[in-house]
């Protein structure tokens, strides 16, 4: 019982919760505006992680700088994928009719390619590096610098994104597209401008999340898929395309996971996550935090 009430566990829950919220934010933005289900999202996290690893090991560039490199790299990839593939998919009425299922399969192809290219280039062995791993103790809670940094960056980006959606004109356009695509076009939102920007932003956020992951965990070419699943669990709980609720759901999942595992054993982690995922989809596919208003 003592461990359950300790600040230590709460800190762990917040660190993973904020990371989940960040990863899901990128996925949710892309789904909300383009209706594309990016099953390769976790592989972008992997690419971000590898970027940080190589920059740190080869050039001693710290992750604080790698954030920008990883974000730019993933954004570039997003732009290439949009121009090369999804512009065609979204423009072709036959394919766009089932855009969600088709995009899922297309992104599966991308995911397989990214994983295996990375494995070909860097082998499948797991890698890691040490950065800011000295322990800081405050109020009886032991924290490492890299986890604090992770919490700060992930939390900061989530909050900034929410504020941007609330107060910036482009944020309003974005919300309009998410809520009513056709109506947004009628009132003058240029989809051809919004869509590529959002796919780049969504991919860049995943890259940044990857840098955060690489600071605390071992990385492999196949590390991405679990993150994809986590992101899907989060946005299903929050409701597909519902950005604010998604952030809340990410934090909740971090809490549920950390406390659930503390109460049982680490072996139940996956069962807990998938069980939650299946239960939510079966009972309330529109999400737990959404009001039941759907067009």
């Amino acid at each position: 019982m003592d461990t359950l009430l300790s600040g230590q566990l709460l800190f762990a829950a917040l660190v993973s919760g904020s990371l989940y919220a960040l990863i899901a934010l990128g996925l949710n933005l892309v789904y909300g505006t383009l209706r594309l289900l990016n099953i390769a999202h976790g592989d972008l996290v992997m690419i971000g992680a590898y970027t940080a690893f190589w920059l740190f090991t080869l050039l001693s560039i710290p992750p604080v700088v790698s954030f920008f490199v990883a974000a730019a790299l993933c954004a570039l990839l997003g732009w290439a994928v949009y121009e090369g593939m999804f512009r065609r998919l979204l423009a072709n009425p036959g394919l766009a009719k089932r855009v969600e299922a088709n995009s899922l399969i297309l992104f599966y192809g991308i995911s397989v390619i990214l994983q295996n290219l990375t494995a070909l280039a860097f082998t499948s062995s797991s890698r890691g590096y040490q950065y800011l791993d000295t322990v800081i103790t405050w109020q009886g809670v032991s924290m490492t610098g890299n986890r604090l940094l992770s919490l700060g960056v992930a939390g900061g980006i989530c909050i900034a994104a929410l504020l941007f959606l609330r107060f910036h004109l482009f944020g309003w356009e974005l919300r309009a597209v998410i809520q009513r695509r056709e109506a947004a076009q009628i009132v003058g939102v240029n989809l051809n401008r919004v869509q590529p920007i959002i796919i780049c932003a969504g991919f860049a956020i995943a890259g940044i999340a990857g840098v955060l992951v690489s600071m605390t965990e071992q990385i492999t070419p196949f590390m991405g898929f679990p993150f994809t699943i986590i992101a899907f669990v989060v946005i299903i709980i929050g409701g597909l395309g519902n950005i604010g609720a998604g952030v809340l759901a990410g934090l909740s999942l971090g809490l549920i996971e950390t406390y659930g595992v503390a109460l049982t054993s680490p072996g139940y982690r996956s069962i807990l996550i998938y069980g939650l995922f299946v239960a939510v989809l079966l009972i309330r596919p529109e999400g737990i935090f959404t009001k039941a208003v759907r067009s």
């Binding site: 299922a101 699943i229 069980g275």
Partner: peptide
Amino acid sequence: RVQGPYFVILTYGLAELVRNV
């Protein structure tokens, strides 16, 4: 009862759930 993209990811999640169980 679950349709469209939800069905696709639900079947995936279910398979993973059974695998882990």
